[in-house]
Simulated scan of single mutants.
Amino acid sequence: MPKPPLLSSPELERSSVVANNTMNRERGLTGVNSYARELGVDLLAHLAHRPAPSWLDLCSGEGRALREAASALPAEAVLTAVDLVGPLAPRSAPPALEEIVASVSSWTPPRTYDLITCVHGLHYIGDQLGLLTRAASWLTEDGLLAAHFDPESVRHADGSPAARPALSALRAAGYSYSPRHHRLTLRGGRPVQLPFHYLGADPTAGPNYTGQPAIASYYTAS
């Protein structure tokens, strides 16, 4: 079976899979359709007792969770939402919230954060492992990274599954993974190097465990 043509990050971001208008962009902080339910973490409890708590949300959609958190956190809090298209319904942001329209594949923050989240966003990022590597260095010393990750979306150059070596490398670097919930977490900022070189992504990979179309990321060993 011939390998599908692989797209670069800019090409991928123009594809219909990444520009999926049925994607859930409205998750709040708590409740049935929420970050707390999806990530299994009391995010406000993690940020509590910090004089100036900071939270970076990657692939933030409409930014509802951060807007709700702003009212419960100190005025000194730093909340950063990064999304490829930003909120589709423009509205004024709380003083603590900065909304950035950018590709998370190339964007880099000027600071570190106590909390970094990516709720079902990695499914649409070409170099998933590269983003996870970079995000590890954006955490504070006791910071928490929590994201959904589908190891079945990681492929070798010939298209064969690379889930096992990817998970092995991530765990060796300090990440924890829950197969049942597809949750990847990392506690404590650190430099991370993973033994993979990104080749490109296939937006025709089909639905993943969420039932939504997703991409497959191709790598060679480095």
Rank of each mutant, 00 (worst) to 15 (best):
A135P: 04
V104P: 05
T220R: 13
V85A: 14
G211C: 06
T30C: 13
Y175N: 02
P94L: 02
Y219I: 00
F149N: 02
C118N: 12
S176K: 05
T108Q: 15
L84F: 03
P2T: 11
I116G: 04
A157I: 00
R180W: 11
P5R: 13
E68G: 05
H46K: 12
R111L: 10
V32T: 15
D57E: 15
R183W: 07
T140I: 05
A81S: 13
Y177G: 03
G189R: 02
Q128G: 13
S9K: 02
L79F: 07
H156W: 15
P53Y: 10
V101W: 10
R91S: 14
A216F: 00
S103K: 03
P90N: 04
P10S: 11
F149Q: 00
L132A: 03
S106N: 11
I116W: 02
S16P: 14
P161D: 09
A146I: 08
E98Q: 13
P191N: 12
D114Y: 02
L12P: 00
R25A: 10
S222L: 14
S54T: 12
V17R: 03
D142H: 14
A136I: 07
E68D: 11
L144S: 04
W107Y: 07
D114A: 09
P110Y: 09
A52M: 06
L170K: 02
K3W: 06
S71N: 11
R67D: 11
L39H: 07
G159F: 00
D202W: 06
P95E: 07
L122I: 07
T133A: 08
E98C: 11
S178V: 10
G40S: 09
P165F: 06
A169V: 08
D150I: 07
A52H: 11
L12Q: 03
W107T: 02
L56F: 06
P151W: 03
R155S: 01
L131A: 08
V104K: 00
S168T: 15
D114P: 01
G28R: 03
R27Q: 14
A147H: 04
S54F: 09
G189E: 05
T220N: 11
T185E: 14
A135T: 03
A214D: 05
L184G: 01
T204N: 13
S222T: 14
A135K: 03
A173G: 10
T117K: 05
R111C: 12
V41C: 08
S153P: 04
A65C: 07
A169I: 05
A96T: 15
R67S: 11
S217E: 04
I116F: 10
A69N: 04
G126T: 02
P109G: 07
A89E: 15
G86H: 02
V154P: 02
P207W: 11
S106F: 12
F196N: 05
R164V: 15
A70Q: 06
G174I: 03
S137T: 12
R171V: 15
A72M: 12
R14N: 14
V32P: 12
P191G: 04
D142V: 07
Y177S: 06
P4M: 10
P161M: 05
M23V: 14
S137V: 01
L79K: 06
S222V: 13
A201Q: 01
V82A: 00
Y219W: 02
G61W: 01
P94K: 01
L144F: 06
L122T: 04
L145I: 10
A201L: 07
W107Q: 02
